[in-house]
Amino acid sequence: MSTPAATIAARLDATKAAILARIPSAKPKVGLVLGSGLGPFADTLQDLVKIPYGELPHLPASKVFGHAGNLCFGKSSNVEVVCMQGRAHAYEGHPLESVVHGVRTMARLGASTILLTNAVGGLVPTWSVGDLMVISDHLNLTGQNVLIGTNEDALGTRFPEMSEAYDLGLRAALHRVAAKHGITLREGVYAGLSGPCFETPAEVRMLQLLGAHAVGMSTVQEVIALRHMRVRVGALSCVTNVAGGTEGNPPTHQEVEETARAKRDELQTLLSGWIAAAGELP
């Protein structure tokens, strides 16, 4: 049974109060969710302050390797930023309300623009491991939706509009930063599955027929929750493995981590430049 929306609001307020008790000046304008292998970007923030998820009420800790589990506050390009250094996943057994509690908390703190990052399996034969992809749209194939249940009008409308779930301006900003630094960016549709197993060859063929360019086990519910709260959302994926059946070698989580580490410099350049651009938005 879904958690009543009033309880969701109370939990958000409790988490926000706990953060402000430790960092009274926390007023982030921009938020980032750092997925598998991408967490080290948070360590580049100026005036960095970290709070482990386990020290905040209602914020679940991820048990997945590569997700440090810290809420990080600081500045990048003189913009106040909050970063989730790793995320919780539904496949770990967390209810969806808990999975999106972190991004909802960032929005509750004042972050009006949020960039989500993730590691994905590539579905396009001509793409390569290590490619970076701006998400233009998604397919929610998890069989779930975080908004099922009683709606709270204070958070958002009963039927949030999703025709531009991934903000055009934020996508354009990523492309501008990439072009400036000579970084190649793909753009495509993200298929969100529940996980935790990787996809079968038949599932890969299905996803390709549906028009997906990459597949992963996160992000979709976060986007739905944020758009419900009228937050501008962008998303950036790192192709860290080839989805099952499209090459001879099956994917592994170690492969995901190693590829993300190899792309760290490019990702940090992209994220820093994107934050500067997002900080200039009204």
Rank of each mutant, 00 (worst) to 15 (best):
Y166N: 07
L170K: 01
G245S: 09
S25L: 09
P24W: 03
D47A: 11
E258P: 00
P201D: 15
D131Q: 06
W274I: 01
G149L: 04
G31V: 03
Q208H: 02
L209M: 14
N151A: 11
F65Y: 08
G149P: 05
A68K: 12
G195D: 01
S77F: 11
G86M: 01
K27W: 02
A260L: 09
I23S: 12
I224G: 10
S62K: 02
E97L: 06
H67F: 03
N151F: 09
H228R: 15
S98W: 12
L132G: 06
N118L: 10
H89S: 00
P125Y: 03
T105R: 01
P251H: 00
E247L: 00
T259M: 00
T200G: 12
A88N: 11
I224S: 04
D153H: 08
G234T: 04
C238H: 00
I183L: 13
N249H: 13
P60W: 14
K50S: 15
S237Y: 14
G195C: 06
V79D: 09
V177P: 05
G35T: 13
H228Q: 15
V215R: 03
T126H: 07
Q46D: 13
G86K: 00
N145S: 04
L267A: 12
P282K: 08
G93D: 12
S36C: 04
Q85I: 12
D47M: 06
H228E: 11
A172F: 11
P28Y: 05
A14T: 15
H213D: 14
A21E: 11
H181Q: 15
P52H: 06
H94A: 13
M1A: 14
D13T: 02
I135R: 11
V82P: 12
A276F: 04
G244Q: 10
G188A: 07
G234N: 03
D131G: 01
S194D: 02
R227S: 10
A90V: 12
L132Y: 01
L281E: 09
I8N: 05
R232H: 08
A10S: 14
H138E: 09
I8S: 05
G37M: 01
V239K: 05
